[in-house]
């Protein structure tokens, strides 16, 4: 039970640090994200620095993880087990990329930007949740 509460506190803190990082990085701004994707136009390299900084620090995390038997507040690491590069992965990611380019929003910044109370962001998040539910329904239907 204590671990449950600690895990919740860690998740809240990690979410807040993520949201502050997004705000500071400029990646909450769809115009900056689209500027990065606009490689043949007025290219804005910011996103490459954001990703570079994030991956570098996360790599320290994954290196430490390999030296640990279990995470500090749980009995096992919950890691993805899939290893195959299949059509589902590539086509799904490409569909995501089209949506990402159209609006300049991906799940993290869209949720985080909800706090600014802008109608387009709210509409995007509602549509995103519907998209997720639709896929999960279809996938469950196929495996059932």
């Amino acid at each position: 039970m204590t671990n449950r509460i600690s895990q919740g506190a860690v998740a809240l803190g990690a979410g807040a640090v993520f949201g502050i990082g997004l705000s500071l990085s400029g990646m909450l701004d769809p115009a900056r994200v689209q500027g990065f994707l606009d490689v043949f136009g007025a290219w804005d390299p910011s996103l490459a620095f954001v990703l570079g900084g994030a991956v570098t620090v996360a790599m320290i995390g994954t290196a430490l993880m390999r030296r640990m038997v279990r995470p500090m507040l749980d009995t096992v690491f919950h890691l993805p087990t899939a290893t195959k590069i299949d059509a589902r992965l590539v086509i799904g990611s490409a569909i995501f990329g089209v949506g990402w380019g159209l609006a300049g929003l991906c799940p993290g910044p869209a949720l985080s930007a909800l706090s600014l109370g802008l109608m387009p962001v709210v509409a995007f998040v509602v549509a995103m949740v519907i998209g997720m539910v639709v896929y999960d329904r279809l996938a469950r239907g196929r495996s059932a």
């Binding site: 990611s93 949506g99 549509a127 995103m128 998209g131 539910v133 896929y135």
Partner: peptide, 8 residues
């Protein structure tokens, strides 16, 4: 875009 991002 939201639908595609969620689904994808």
């Amino acid at each position: 875009a939201g639908l595609l991002v969620g689904f994808g």
